[in-house]
Amino acid sequence: MTPTIADDAQYWDTSPHHHEEGASTTIGFWIYLMSDCLMFAVLFAVFGVLGQSYAAGPGPQALFELHLVAINTAFLLLSSLTFGFAMLSTVAGRQDRAMLWLGATLVLGLAFLAVEIYEFQHLIHLGAGPQRSAFLSSFFALVGTHGLHVAFGCLWLGTLMIQIRKHGLTGANIRRMTCLSMFWHFLDVIWIGVFTFVYLLGMI
């Protein structure tokens, strides 16, 4: 019963559902993103339940600075656009241009992180750290988790750029970039929820 190598090869060749290598990577990565989405849904639910338990501490209106949030939103939205352009340059086979757009995306991602770290540090300095109230605990958990995702996205982006520099736009690298682009756009979608439900609705 043990299939020989020749049998194996024949099996793959004659299979009616033959896919080229990596063809199922994007759907697999999409399912990962959906599970990530469920995790964010739970964090949003926690914030929705605890977001008004100030424990006599400061509320959103005393803490949040909307222009910082607006700047961060602009950074993320622009980075989605630059990543899209990087994808298009890649599809066209223009490696130098793709690297340029990826570099721009990385800079925008790091700028987002810098503003967010400044904001967190400012809040903790004011005595409004995660231990102050249930509202602030759930705020730091939700926004911090999103920020961690962006941080790992930046790390991934950096390593991918090194890979592309070393090996060029190979099939594997394009597949990785496609996954990262889905990840990056997904984080931008989550950010829409964050700025709407955490910041804007808190300030009304």
Binding site: H19, E20, G22, A23, S24, T26, L77, S80, L81, G84, F85, M87, L88, T90, V91, G93, Q95, G168, L169, T170, G171, I174, R175, T178
Partner: peptide, 27 residues
């Protein structure tokens, strides 16, 4: 690399990569 990827990229899995126009509209 380009020759190899050109065949690969165009629709490796039926995945749509959009156009400059669609990204601009979305933005």
């Amino acid at each position: 690399a380009h020759a190899k990827t050109a065949a690969h990229v165009h629709h490796p899995d039926g995945h749509d990569h959009g156009t400059y126009r669609s990204y601009a509209i979305g933005f």
